[in-house]
Design a binder for these strands. Structure first.
Lengths: 138, 138
DNA sequence: GATAATAGTTATCAAAGGTAACTATTTTAC
DNA sequence: GTAAAATAGTTACCTTTGATAACTATTATC
């Protein structure tokens, strides 16, 4: 049970920027894969659509993300605003410091190994049972 | 982000026994360290006391755990009831199957490595910052 | 063109956590 | 030996984060 203390601590770090974990996860994803639809975000987070709608709205209200016209009138494609990208860099500092702290004494190799294994497990979960999100099954 | 799919799936497994993750964690802990106080449980889960009070009450109402007189009139020492222990065995089957499934293709060694690393990280979190629970600081 | 599927939203509920403020005991300090 | 501090737990209440059900609007498919 690594998760509880990790999340607890991450949230106190993010609180410095008046952010919560769920919001940060979306900002983080958008920094990499930039215009992303809500469904994409929903799949990434492993969370139902209404949950994403809410979190994205919060970020929208704060001017961190904005909509870009997608090829479809249905889809809502989001990207980080200019301010959002700057914001990301700020949070990044906090998160980097946090990560460095909790990874003290753990080598690059060890970390890589752990990541690979956890990724294998994640794939197993998503493949078999229904670690997946409802939308995908229709 | 291994956690979300893992918890989601675990919860659907536990639902077969009308259980939730937080409850299961306590049952699991009590199977090993049997009479445990609420503070102990609270530290184990990395969660504040009121949260534990609630979860333990639920298990108490279902006759899964019961109080044993501790050396102190303050502390509430809990153990699994007879029914609770039987219940544990049942759930164990479900959880074992689940674990086997998600660990498919992952060797003993790999798993051990991952556990060691994650444990190191957990220790780092608890040591430094405040991955800890409020009670401990007073 | 009617039916399916897809993307998103709204409303509402539940799980799981937190804080503040409290009671009842037990320890510690003077 | 009592007053103050610490410890264990509880109650009341709030927040975050998730889920479901039922819906609209748009696009694909047959």
């Amino acid at each position: 049970m690594l998760y509880r203390p990790f999340e607890k601590r991450l949230n106190t770090e993010l609180a410095k920027h008046e952010l919560h974990r769920a919001q940060w996860t979306i900002i983080y994803y958008l920094e990499n894969i930039n215009p992303a639809t809500l469904v994409e975000l929903s799949n990434y987070q492993g969370v139902e659509k209404p949950t994403i709608t809410r979190t994205v709205s919060q970020l929208e209200e704060r001017g961190i993300v904005e909509q870009v016209p997608g090829k479809d009138k249905r889809e809502k494609r989001m990207q980080l605003t200019k301010a959002g990208k700057q914001f990301y860099q700020e949070i990044r500092k906090t998160v980097d410091a946090y990560e460095e702290e909790i990874l003290m004494g753990i080598s690059e190799e060890e970390l890589k190994t752990a990541i690979v294994i956890m990724d294998d497990i994640r794939k197993n979960i998503i493949q078999s049972g229904d670690g997946e999100v409802g939308t995908n099954k229709n």
